[in-house]
Simulated assay, not measured.
Amino acid sequence: MRIKTFKLERLFARYAEKAKYMLSQSSCEGCTMQEVLDMADPECKKLWDNLSLGYTRPEGFRPLREAITTRYTSIRPSDILELTPEEGIFIFMNNMLDEGDEVIVMHPTLPSLYELPRALGCRVIKWPLEVTSWGWRLDVNFLAENITPKTKLLVLNIPNNPTGYIPVRTELDRILNLADRNGTWVFNEETYRGMEHDPAAAIPSLADIYHRAVVIGGLNKYGLPGTRMGWLVSKSRQIIEECAAYKDYTTLCNNAPGEVLATIAMRNAADLLQRNHKIVLENLSIAEAFFKKNRDLFQWVQPNGGATAFPRLLPPFDVTEMCEKAMEEKDLLIVGERAYGLDTNHFRVGLGRRDFAQALAVFSDIVDEVRTAEAEAKEK
């Protein structure tokens, strides 16, 4: 299988070492090792102190899977397979899909969610998120017109990265009803579930409410993405077992230190989530003020959840040129639309880091230079 270049990750690989500032990080503020260990209960302290660096259980660490179940309402430890989040997407897609299958994918989203089905020979239909006067939305009528009994899989990313979109419950129910009537499986990358900006906008995990659901979660929003720990969840015993067997050909088992650190984190999930959500909401307020102040250059589209937003640079300016200028002149890394296969002049803003205001101040200098150059051009 030949997969197209993962442009989003290659962008970070190319510029991350050079960049002094980053405006587009999707991960939340990272925890230090000491912060995590200070949260450990006596059992986890003992596990850490006596940790063996031998092989771990392929299906995962039982205490961690038990801790993960607290984030769901009807999921058992046996419904969970531990793995690296991106690995989970790769394994699931390879198990579920065959050449010629039809897949509908909401877009924009993590590129692997549509590039992997494409590489497997599937017919991929992109279901576009649209900008409206009240924010991002999915046209459910588009899904109703395109989903058929031939549709093997519907791929969602809710809360969405990069837009921060979350459907209201009635919209989600309609989406799942359409999938159910056509016998379609639904896969949701739901890393940011629990980070709704308005608690009233919270929706349950699809694994809890749809019998053909498979979901991916991970430690990104808890501040431990460097552990590379995540989980695949489904009530389908067959899917969990088949994905576990496929994992024998990838990582086989998880890293032992990561499992204990992840267990500590998930036993303190509410506190970690509150910590990073507070950072996101503070940065969101700063971002809103900045983009509204510069509404002559940008269209700010309000996110509903997660740790990212996806504003648009207004014509005649080109977002790719802006991103290149930021990197070349200010060592500021900005992820533009091309990383998501788009041509709409949007770019990603990451709201989860404590240094966001500093990166935004550097970006403000770029904006001032753009505005000055525009004024000079008009005078000529």
Rank of each mutant, 00 (worst) to 15 (best):
E66G: 10
Y55G: 11
S364K: 06
M33V: 13
G88K: 03
E369P: 08
L110S: 10
D271K: 14
M33Q: 12
A377L: 06
K18N: 05
G341L: 09
Y340V: 02
P225W: 05
L8G: 08
S52V: 05
I166Q: 07
P63W: 09
Q25R: 14
A269P: 00
P167S: 05
P257H: 06
K247F: 13
N283W: 02
L47T: 08
C243P: 14
Y210W: 08
F187M: 09
A67N: 11
D101E: 08
T73H: 13
I264T: 04
N220Q: 14
S52I: 10
T148S: 13
N50S: 15
R57F: 06
L252N: 11
Y21S: 06
M322N: 01
F298A: 01
K325S: 10
N254S: 15
K325T: 10
T148M: 03
E35N: 04
V362T: 06
R10N: 13
S236Q: 14
D173I: 02
G341W: 06
E329F: 01
V124S: 06
K150N: 12
N94A: 04
V214I: 15
V301G: 11
A339Y: 12
A269G: 06
T372H: 14
T109C: 15
F298E: 03
P159H: 03
E328V: 02
C323N: 07
N177V: 00
N255V: 09
L53H: 03
R312G: 02
I279G: 01
P77Y: 05
E189K: 11
R275E: 10
A207N: 11
A144N: 11
P225Y: 07
H211F: 09
R10T: 14
E259T: 03
E59D: 13
A245R: 14
V362I: 12
T372C: 12
N94Q: 13
A289K: 14
Y210L: 09
A377T: 00
G350N: 02
V186A: 04
F142K: 07
L138D: 09
N95Q: 13
A357Q: 10
K235D: 15
E145C: 05
V301H: 10
V36G: 01
P199V: 03
E242K: 12
S27W: 14
E259L: 15
R123N: 12
F12M: 03
R65H: 06
Q238M: 09
N268M: 07
E379G: 08
F290H: 01
K221T: 14
I264M: 07
P199C: 02
N220D: 15
P315E: 00
E321N: 12
H107P: 03
S74T: 14
L332I: 04
I175Q: 00
A144F: 04
I89F: 02
A40T: 13
K247G: 10
T184G: 06
V280F: 00
D101R: 04
E35A: 08
I80S: 07
K46M: 11
I216R: 07
K4P: 10
L332N: 07
A207Q: 07
L178F: 04
F12A: 08
T184W: 07
I279S: 02
R348S: 11
P85W: 08
P111L: 08
